[in-house]
Amino acid sequence: MNDSHVAQTSGVLPVLLPLAERMTRAALRERAMGSPTLRLDSSHGVALVVAFLCGCGITQAQSQAADPSIFTTLWKWTPLLARGFVFNLAISFMAMAIGTIAGLFLGFAQISLLPPVKKGAFFATHFFRNAPWLVLLFYCMFLLPFQVTVLGVTIPIPDWTKATLGLALPVMANVSEIVRGAIQSIPTTQWEAAASLAFNRRQALWMIIFPQCIKRMLPPWMNLYAILTMATVLASIVGVNEMMTLTQRALSAESRPGLLLAFYSYVLLWFFLYCYPIARWTVRLEARYAVNQ
């Protein structure tokens, strides 16, 4: 790693060192990941639990004698919210699968030797990577038809499918960059060695270069998945029945204004519990591969 200059400054500016060093590390890490990394740690969980308990406390304090306790209310709605959460996960799995497959193709196209393919893939990658996720979601919602007719058979396209496609687009673009970055991080001498053994470009890519990329791609890919999972709640804006939408429905059914904080931090807790292990695992993998390289 290139933090030698950090070490050099240690004698001069000891006070700044921890911060400078941390920031350098973070910057290097994000560069390696190709996207902002989730840096969830247990303190975030503690903060969330505190917020949740505060929310519950406030609600409890505001409630009238006749109201059931906040925990009873949450418990009552939990099955419905859980169903919504499963839907979020389903969307995240499918968007990730579609985005990954499409992204692999796009990533390979980015290193094509044919200029039009390369340029087209570059443009598509950067277009979808830099477009706001919500805008892409809206585009998919409103530009895709609600049904298609293939060979006389009418197939409906439900909203959640469109939302999945909408989320798969930025995933695709990010995977494309992850693939391109990983391939280009393999020393060119590996290509050269393969060529001198008469492997053609395609064989070299599939048998020699790409297998070496997988380890490098895994941490940023998992990071992307965690980000995507959190982004699935965007689907509530376009009316998909996922956890966020159902939370809003629960809140309006209860019509107790004080419930807001408790419910939303409850939802956050669910997402935290799901994403935290992924984030930790990503960090572990990253550290392991960094040592091995």
């Binding site: 590996q190 060695a193 001198s196 053994l197 008469a198 492997f199 048998m207 297998p211 070496q212």
Partner: peptide
């Protein structure tokens, strides 16, 4: 056939696999 200064072995393959790859997949 060429041998390089930095060896350029394929790191994800064992020594034997390194030797076997080209004859199997190319030849």
């Amino acid at each position: 056939s060429m041998v390089f200064q930095q060896y350029n072995l394929f790191p994800h393959k064992t020594a034997l696999e390194n030797v076997m790859m080209a004859p199997i997949y190319v030849l």
